[in-house]
């Protein structure tokens, strides 16, 4: 099963490599990884999506928690949650295709953020499956480049991950 694990990490040198290194060291897999500072300058937030059976996920969370730099951790997929990812896609956009692409972009509620005579750059946010669907939809016109941020997320309702 796919899990989204969010971690509050001490904003210390080496902390990120400890967290990420753990995955390869223990043969856990990482599908996406997203890290950035938080409102608290001493903490960064790391979100990782991974897959594994119950036993593997239990080990992943326990091993992460054991890292001295990990302050708090939540498996977002254990409850209702909001999952978002941002993607920038460059696609070939010639002649009649330009309108066609524009229509698809609207359907996905994406935005064209940069234009040249032959290229559109599209920005789209959503959960991972929406982004996958958009990539599929664009494949026939010709994708030049894809940049995804990796999944980030929060729990729904009053559940929060902070100190």
């Amino acid at each position: 099963m796919r899990h989204i694990i969010s971690i509050l990490l001490e904003n210390e040198p080496g902390a990120l490599s400890r967290a990420v290194g753990l995955f390869s060291q223990r043969n856990f897999n990482i599908e996406t990884l997203n890290v950035a500072p938080t409102d608290d300058a001493t903490l960064s937030r790391l979100t990782v999506t991974t897959t594994g059976d119950e036993r593997v996920i239990e080990q992943i969370t326990k091993q992460l928690n054991k890292l001295i730099d990990v302050v708090k951790l939540v498996d977002l997929t254990e409850g209702a949650h909001i999952e978002r990812e941002l993607m920038l896609v460059k696609v070939k956009a010639h002649g009649a295709q330009r309108d066609e692409i524009k229509r698809t972009v609207d359907i996905f509620r994406a935005q064209i953020v940069d234009v040249t005579p032959s290229i559109y750059t599209v920005q789209i946010t959503g959960d991972a499956s929406k982004l996958d669907a958009f990539v599929q939809a664009m494949a026939p016109v010709g994708i030049l480049e894809v940049a995804r941020t990796g999944v980030s997320g929060v729990s729904r309702g009053d559940k929060v991950l902070n100190l």
Partner: peptide, 14 residues
Amino acid sequence: IVGVTRPIVKHSFS
């Protein structure tokens, strides 16, 4: 050495 020993320490400091 912090990198080299990362998987075999409880923790490390610089």
